[in-house]
Nucleic acid binder design. Structure first.
Lengths: 222, 222
DNA sequence: AAAATAAATTAGGTAAGCCTAATTATGTAT
DNA sequence: ATACATAATTAGGCTTACCTAATTTATTTT
């Protein structure tokens, strides 16, 4: 029951995975430093050690990428994080904007048996409370075809399936606006000037959503 | 959300609490070293720092005791550990001999809100899967009057409420012997020579239990 | 292309929590 | 009370993961 990967390594791997997912290609020292809230010099230090362990590949002054080994560990952390989030929301009654910090701690608990039992207990969920996909035990996703609402056209009927922005302020804005995962949205019109969207939610309320909002709402065409 | 008490401190506090509970009075450096599986010199080092933080009182070469502050932290860790064990057994289907290591990790997750929600979710259990009492959020126990079966007399009818020994081998022995928490035990006879007990379980099976076993079975008179 | 700016790296340090080896206290037996 | 054994402490080191300051490398701007 010895720890193969330290807490810090797990956090670096997760951060690299997420930064790569957002921006593609190599992840820079400064991006990592910003994301992990540590000094860039510490990052340089640390990534050298991780490269020596073959968790990442590192091109000096150019950035890092996950190796397959590193990618699988990152995905297992993400899997744990998202399963715990599901549990916190569905079993303990937390709100979607309250679970991140707690899941950040729970994700580091080590026990394959635990996480498989948790998965089973939750009924093998495919997504977390923010609509993010949950990889399986082998790091595989069931990809879906969601895209930003911003990319939709007037007249489109879509289902709200996830968020591209996970800040509490955005999640709380959606909660206050009574927009929930799974809601049906009808794009009634798009304002040319500022790309704000007039939408009808669940065939009931009408709402005006700013470009900043529609950019961060992920939807699937119905 | 900064950590007031480090992981190591939490483990020292818990170990001191448990050693004190078992042996009373001051806890020695060597007992702590043995319990935590670290070198005695490391313990001396560490307890000096903890004493400086007023988590324990330390009398050089004599041992340590928890301060009220330290005791409350120790109890909060024990509370978390036991609540998680209840969850692992009742919700995830683990056996009573499979939960300790996982709970050792979960007990360090920090969130008062989480632990109170968990407590509620579990229906405010008073004991963990081994019959150990769960302190409330303020560190208070509802004391019960259990004692070792060894202290009982022939003819006593008792309920099996807990174990004094938590090793997996003992727990597994009980499982194999089909003796579970809550079972009713009738002491039919006691062998004078070796203090082995002939008991009848739930008014059905007869079993012979060695002194080593009856010493570690905690029971309440019915 | 040179100069200016930004990003990354190197060098040298720190704190936490552990270690071994050497020394000092304490408790026990004679 | 002295000698012996055991327990505790001190001294000096190590590793992990961070830091600051100085330097080097890469990217822009002029």
């Amino acid at each position: 029951m010895k720890k193969a990967t330290s807490l810090a390594e797990e956090n670096y791997l997760k951060a690299i995975y997420k930064l790569h997912e957002r921006n593609g290609a190599m992840v820079s020292t400064s991006a990592l430093a910003e994301s992990l809230q540590v000094n860039a010099a510490s990052v340089t230090d640390f990534i050298k050690k991780m490269a020596a362990k073959k968790l990442i590949s590192y091109e000096k002054s150019r950035g890092v990428m996950l190796t397959e080994k590193g990618r699988l560990i990152a995905l297992s952390i993400i899997r744990k994080h998202r399963l715990w989030e599901v549990w916190l929301v569905t079993n303990l009654g937390f709100k979607w904007d309250e679970v991140h910090e707690i899941a950040e701690q729970l994700e580091h608990v080590i026990s394959d048996e635990l996480i498989e039992q948790l998965d089973k207990h939750l009924g093998y969920p495919k997504t977390d409370p923010h609509g993010d996909l949950i990889p399986d035990a082998k790091g595989r996703f069931i990809k879906n075809s969601s895209k930003p609402l911003l990319d939709c056209a007037a007249g489109d009927r879509v289902k709200f399936t996830g968020v591209a922005e996970h800040s509490n302020s955005f999640l709380q804005y959606l909660t206050r606006s009574n927009i929930k995962l799974g809601d049906e949205l009808l794009v009634e019109s798009i304002e040319e000037f500022d790309k704000s969207f007039q939408v009808k939610i669940n065939n009931k309320e009408r709402k005006l959503l700013s470009k900043e909002v529609v950019k961060n709402l992920l939807v699937m065409l119905l």
